[in-house]
Amino acid sequence: MKKILIASLVAGISLSSQALATVTMASGVTLEPKLVGDLDKAQGNFNNNFSFIQWWDDSRTTSEYDSLNTFNPLDAANWSLNGIGKMDITGDLGTLNCSACEITFEFGGLGVNFIFNEDLLENLGFTSAVADYGLDLNDPDFESDFIAAFNLDRGTSYTSFNDITEDFYSTPANVPEILISDVSGESFLNVYVDHTPDAGSFLDYTINDGVISSAEMATVVDANDLWLTLDFNEGNYSPEGDEFFGLAQGDTDFSFTVTGGPAEDNFKKGVIRETSLDLIDFSDLIGLSLGASFLNGTDADLFATGTAGTITGVAVPEPSSIAALGAGLLMLFGASRRKK
């Protein structure tokens, strides 16, 4: 029974002990951890705010930044979402910290798709029309069949299912979802620790010329400063309004899997998720409420504004220090047995 007890103590040390001691990580990053909370509610031992800027890129153009003003849902497969950002370093409990440095990141390879809006099923006018037309929502030809039946019934000439539902039922038929590539590395997030800080406000980068220059990008992204690489694991996008097909503004929540970098072993793997936000797979890190808006009156800006969020997970010291502490417990247990 005593051996089992000691084994349990050693196995649990990577979580429980870090609620009490400073966690020292790669590249001089430290953490004064919080108590680990409910990991099903993304309550790890750190929770860090960050700011970022993001943009859309249409692969069919030579420009790296494309406006939603030219977006067509039929061409959605050609568009990807990308961005850069910076962690807030405040020294507060439960936040990542380092002396005279900045922690920056880049992400990319996120796509967009459109799916049926479940809110339509709450609209009695729409559901009555479906029943009257004798249509099956699960039929792959449902949308085209509904358009044909609606036009015949109303004497109209609509060609878009979305236009019908917005004009007559005040609800968009299809809503966007952010796509994560199934191929490792295609949807990515890289984190950098730079001990010669030079990244300013990302919004300032675009004030004069509306682009981010290679020199400005270099202040954020330097391969020599790479600290952590991650793959996107799960994600949920909640649009605010239906401007520009619902892509103009909204909140996104993501989970991540750590894949490499000097700090790879500083993060507890597969322990955290956010079930209330339908992030149900156990992951390594969770990015919460990444809010952003491209909306500028009746137009869309190239770059999103109001961009901020939080990242949370369970940070641990290097495995060697955990092993040393575990060995110390075993030695202590051995000494206790000898005294008896």
Score class of each variant (00 low, 15 high):
residue 1 M to P: 04
residue 1 M to W: 12
residue 2 K to V: 09
residue 3 K to V: 10
residue 4 I to V: 12
residue 5 L to R: 05
residue 7 A to Q: 14
residue 7 A to P: 07
residue 13 I to E: 15
residue 15 L to S: 13
residue 15 L to M: 15
residue 16 S to C: 11
residue 22 T to C: 09
residue 22 T to M: 10
residue 23 V to R: 02
residue 31 L to C: 09
residue 31 L to H: 10
residue 35 L to F: 11
residue 39 L to I: 09
residue 43 Q to G: 11
residue 46 F to A: 06
residue 51 S to T: 15
residue 52 F to V: 00
residue 53 I to K: 13
residue 53 I to E: 09
residue 54 Q to I: 07
residue 55 W to S: 10
residue 56 W to V: 08
residue 58 D to H: 07
residue 59 S to G: 06
residue 60 R to Y: 03
residue 65 Y to G: 06
residue 67 S to V: 08
residue 68 L to P: 13
residue 70 T to C: 03
residue 72 N to R: 01
residue 72 N to Q: 07
residue 72 N to M: 03
residue 73 P to L: 01
residue 75 D to T: 07
residue 75 D to F: 12
residue 77 A to I: 10
residue 77 A to H: 13
residue 82 N to L: 07
residue 84 I to W: 08
residue 86 K to D: 09
residue 92 D to T: 13
residue 93 L to H: 11
residue 96 L to F: 08
residue 98 C to Y: 02
residue 99 S to P: 02
residue 99 S to M: 02
residue 102 E to Y: 01
residue 109 G to I: 07
residue 111 G to D: 08
residue 112 V to L: 09
residue 113 N to A: 12
residue 113 N to K: 14
residue 120 L to W: 09
residue 123 N to G: 12
residue 126 F to V: 03
residue 126 F to Q: 01
residue 129 A to G: 08
residue 135 L to Q: 14
residue 138 N to A: 11
residue 145 D to P: 01
residue 147 I to N: 05
residue 148 A to V: 13
residue 150 F to W: 05
residue 152 L to Q: 10
residue 154 R to T: 09
residue 158 Y to S: 05
residue 159 T to K: 04
residue 161 F to I: 09
residue 163 D to T: 13
residue 168 F to I: 03
residue 171 T to A: 11
residue 179 L to S: 15
residue 180 I to F: 13
residue 180 I to D: 10
residue 181 S to W: 14
residue 190 N to S: 12
residue 192 Y to W: 03
residue 192 Y to P: 03
residue 195 H to P: 00
residue 197 P to Q: 02
residue 198 D to R: 11
residue 201 S to E: 15
residue 202 F to L: 15
residue 207 I to G: 01
residue 213 S to W: 10
residue 214 S to G: 12
residue 214 S to L: 10
residue 220 V to R: 02
residue 222 D to Y: 01
residue 223 A to V: 12
residue 223 A to Q: 07
residue 223 A to D: 15
residue 225 D to L: 04
residue 225 D to G: 06
residue 227 W to R: 14
residue 228 L to G: 12
residue 229 T to V: 06
residue 229 T to C: 11
residue 232 F to R: 04
residue 237 Y to D: 00
residue 241 G to F: 01
residue 242 D to L: 00
residue 246 G to W: 12
residue 252 T to F: 14
residue 253 D to P: 05
residue 257 T to N: 02
residue 261 G to S: 15
residue 264 E to A: 06
residue 264 E to Q: 13
residue 265 D to P: 00
residue 266 N to I: 02
residue 269 K to T: 06
residue 270 G to Y: 00
residue 270 G to V: 01
residue 273 R to F: 14
residue 273 R to P: 03
residue 279 L to R: 08
residue 282 F to V: 05
residue 285 L to N: 04
residue 285 L to A: 12
residue 286 I to F: 05
residue 290 L to I: 00
residue 292 A to Q: 10
residue 294 F to T: 00
residue 295 L to V: 04
residue 298 T to I: 11
residue 301 D to N: 08
residue 306 G to W: 06
residue 307 T to W: 13
residue 307 T to L: 11
residue 309 G to M: 10
residue 311 I to D: 00
residue 312 T to N: 04
residue 316 V to T: 11
residue 322 I to E: 14
residue 326 G to A: 06
residue 332 L to Q: 04
residue 333 F to C: 01
residue 335 A to I: 06
residue 337 R to S: 00
